[in-house]
């Protein structure tokens, strides 16, 4: 459904993407994981026609985004990282304008607005101005707007950034529902749990390059199954073990303060890139 070959992009002297190759199958929920500035948003902006391609090929449902932009865009829905709903329009008007942009008939728009408002549990507020909605409701409406024209591919750029854990869970449930309904989903995130919980496959991106692509289970298994974190005067170090027994033996031998836990995608990312997914001074774990 999405095929990217040797995709590059430069902004001035900065190489934002340095030759990306990816293939995302139909109905797959694909997570694109990396720290801020890794190239996640640039990739999504190119795939959705917001940024011009540098070089390489990007096919969406078989259509080249550079040469057949209109046909390619029809395949896609985008919920961008920054909520770009029209605050001065109502919930229904936001959906209606989107439907018109995708040449939907009046009857189609009406049907779809009713369906989507039920889908995101906003049926009672079609006439509310968007500026009166909470952050979580706006995020749900943003996803609904991206689904308005029934796209085959849904791009979600950091869909839960800035949301509290309870609302994040609701957005995850919505994303799972969309996926069950058959859409291909391309999700960028820096939240480890988001990728672990949602994704069929994960790509790690670092400094404009893909460093690994596989299922979360395979990526984590390559590191080990259990991890022991130790904190000393040099900071925190992690050691990885194939099973709990060997991890516990290491703990007994080492003494001092430690945390014994299961390996996660952040460990897999660390093992591949040599760095943690530091995000604005926090690590990429979103919390529950």
């Amino acid at each position: 459904m999405i095929r990217i070959e040797n995709l590059t992009k430069k902004f001035g002297k900065t190489q934002a993407l340095a030759g990306i190759d990816l293939h995302v199958g139909q109905g797959e929920l694909f997570a694109y994981l990396g720290p801020n500035g890794a190239g996640k948003t640039t990739t999504i902006r190119i795939l959705t026609g917001l940024t011009r391609i540098g070089s390489g090929l990007a096919l969406l449902g078989g259509h080249d985004i550079a040469r057949e932009a209109t046909a390619a865009k029809r395949q896609c829905g985008l919920a961008p990282q920054q909520i770009n709903l029209d605050n001065e329009l109502t919930v229904a008007e936001n959906l209606d304008i989107h439907g018109r942009l995708f040449s939907m008939s009046r009857a189609e728009r009406r049907r779809r607005i009713d369906e989507l408002l039920a889908y995101i549990e906003l049926s009672d507020r079609p006439r509310s101005l968007v500026k009166h909605l909470s952050g979580g409701l706006k995020r749900r409406l943003l996803i609904a707007r991206a689904l308005m024209h029934e796209p085959k591919i849904l791009f979600l750029d950091e869909p839960t950034v800035g949301l509290d854990p309870a609302i994040r869970r609701r957005i995850w449930a919505l994303i799972k529902k969309v996926r069950r309904d058959g859409a291909t989903i391309f999700l960028t995130t820096h939240y480890i749990e988001e990728a672990e919980f949602l994704a069929d496959r994960v790509a790690f991106i670092d400094r404009g390059r893909i460093v690994a692509v596989d299922t979360p289970a395979v990526l984590m298994a390559a590191v080990g199954e259990w991890a022991v974190d130790r904190v000393d005067e040099n900071g925190m170090t992690s050691a990885y073990f194939p099973d709990r027994d060997s991890a516990q033996s290491s703990v007994s031998a080492g003494g001092g303060g430690f945390t014994l836990r299961r390996v996660n995608l952040e460990d897999a990312f660390l093992a591949r890139t040599g760095k943690k997914m530091v995000v604005d001074g926090q690590n990429g774990r979103g919390g529950h």
Partner: peptide, 13 residues
Amino acid sequence: YWHIFEEFQAAPI
């Protein structure tokens, strides 16, 4: 500020 222009850029118009 609102990034609404991107909604038009991403549309097949």
